[in-house]
Amino acid sequence: MSTQEIRFSGFGGQGIIRCALITGKALSLYDDKFATMTQAFGPEARGSACSAQLVVSDEKVLYPYITAPGVLMALSQEAYEKYSGEVIEGGTLIVDADLVKPHPEHPGRTLWRVPATRFAEELGNRMFTNLVALGFFAAITGVVSDAAMKKALPGLVPDRFLKINIKAFEKGYAHGLDVMRPAQAQAEAATA
């Protein structure tokens, strides 16, 4: 059984919970996976680091919470500081390039910096930051297909912003594929 644990994090208002909802819906409705999404509801979840968790599996998810996340998306410094330590060896960290100043190294983990906020501003509004980051996340991790993610958007973003959200997702996705290429080439060269 292949199980992936993912944490989306940032600060309130960035659309973090929405990221988990979109990804969970995409996986469980359109990618034929089982996905269970939970979020922190307590007073500790108000006004500081905001987080949503997703457990993805080929079989029914029994334990609904994450215990050893393989992927962390952190769109704020606070979230990054709070959660980066829990990512397992071989795991992936995705941070906003402008909002998060990462530690010098994460041995055994891969860190990617995505200019999500900047790209969203170029598209006209910071509101689209989460979709840029999600596109990047989908390209880098391959956990979820881009087609499923786009199908999941209606109903989870306002109708009048659907097109621009898809554009934001595609921008992040394309950027993800771009930055992966040299990394892949390097990996191939190393094994050759």
Binding site: G24, F34, A35, T36, M37, T38, F41, V61
Partner: peptide, 10 residues
């Protein structure tokens, strides 16, 4: 319970 109540699934 709270977990099932707030947990999203298909």
């Amino acid at each position: 319970d709270e977990t099932v109540g707030h947990m999203h699934e298909k």
